[in-house]
């Protein structure tokens, strides 16, 4: 009992460490690739780690009350929770409970924590940014919902792990037409979930001073950087798992080698998802909030609904 619990704790710690590290690398890659598209050199890849260390080592911090602190902690806590449910090769801890709907919700609730913290500061920019973030959430929810429905109906299960296992024998999800449509819609949704252009009006830096983030500084912002890293990892991981086949390598005799190989394959898939988002983000200007809502309620919704209906037939 005790040893198994220690084992789980150790595993969780390693997963967390890996996710955080890779998440920070992803953030670095985003900055470098964007810089290269701009024909700049860009920062070193470990730059986000330096930023986070700097933010955490600030010598004075401010707070606007209990909710301001708790919202930030809640955001990171919920992200860690979400991470534990997503299958990561064959080593995820709670993958038996990794339910599609649960994970979809868990990937959204960190935002609720950030909103709570931002709003409790009383800064008008934060209020405005939260409003925009919520409306973006509302806009993306329709295609996202249809995409998840399409998946669940196609595989007739809600377990992410079973979906991954089904893909090992039957081929990637995106090789089937209904799920290809769902994947396209979900990828457009991911753009907003990453907060990349053209759907980054919620943090519009020049206009509303980063919106919800305006009052965060020092260690609060540092924790949110860590949260962002893990969320980036979790979101790309979720996409690779449900649409791009995940990775369950059993070719080697040693389980450690198998795990490493699965992680490597997953990493490549995650990078592919990420790079698409960066490319789109780097070349588009941003939509206003009603344009974004109208966009999401038109094409991605039609695509995803078509996928869902095809999957149900």
């Amino acid at each position: 009992m005790i040893t198994s619990m220690i084992g789980i704790a150790l595993k969780a710690f390693l997963i967390l460490l890996y996710a955080t590290f890779v998440g920070f690398m992803f953030m670095g890659i985003i900055r470098i690739v964007t810089a290269r598209i701009h024909r700049r050199v860009g920062p070193p890849i470990y730059q986000p780690i330096l930023d986070t260390i700097k933010l955490l080592s600030k010598k004075s911090n401010i707070t606007h009350g209990l909710i301001y602190d708790f919202g930030v902690l809640y955001a990171l806590g919920a992200t860690i929770l979400a991470l534990m449910f997503i299958p990561l090769g064959s080593i995820s801890i709670l993958r038996a409970y990794g339910d599609l709907i649960l994970i979809t919700f868990l990937l959204e609730i960190p935002m609720l924590g950030i909103m709570f913290a931002a709003m409790s500061s009383g800064n008008p920019w934060a209020g405005l940014g939260s409003q925009r973030a919520l409306l973006t959430l509302l806009a993306v929810q329709v295609p996202l919902g249809f995409a998840i429905v399409a998946l669940a109906e196609f595989y007739d299960t809600f377990s992410t792990y079973q979906i991954v296992m089904a893909q090992q024998t039957a081929g990637w999800s995106i090789t089937y037409l209904p799920l290809l449509l769902a994947a396209v819609a979900y990828d457009i949704v991911l753009q907003a979930m990453f907060g990349k252009e053209p759907f980054d009006i919620m943090i519009a830096p020049g206009e509303i001073s980063l919106g919800p983030m305006v009052e965060f500084g020092g260690k609060h912002m540092g924790i949110l950087q860590i949260q962002h890293a893990i969320a980036l990892f979790a979101e790309t991981l979720f996409f690779s798992n449900i649409f791009l086949g995940g990775a369950v390598v059993t070719a080697f005799a040693s389980s450690i080698l198998n795990t490493l190989a699965s992680l490597g394959i997953l990493l490549i898939k995650q990078l592919a998802v990420l790079l698409i988002a960066i490319f789109i983000g780097a070349i588009f200007p941003r939509f206003t909030i009603d344009q974004a809502a109208r966009f999401y309620w038109k094409w991605p919704t039609i695509i995803a609904a078509a996928g869902a209906i095809l999957a149900a037939l």
Binding site: L56, S57, T63, A75, L76, T79, L94
Partner: peptide, 20 residues
């Protein structure tokens, strides 16, 4: 696991400098 996550976040939080 949510409590665990919040505790991890809390440890990072309390290692930082005091808040005003």
């Amino acid at each position: 696991w949510l409590v665990t996550g919040i505790v991890i976040a809390g440890i990072i939080y309390f290692l930082g400098a005091k808040v005003r």
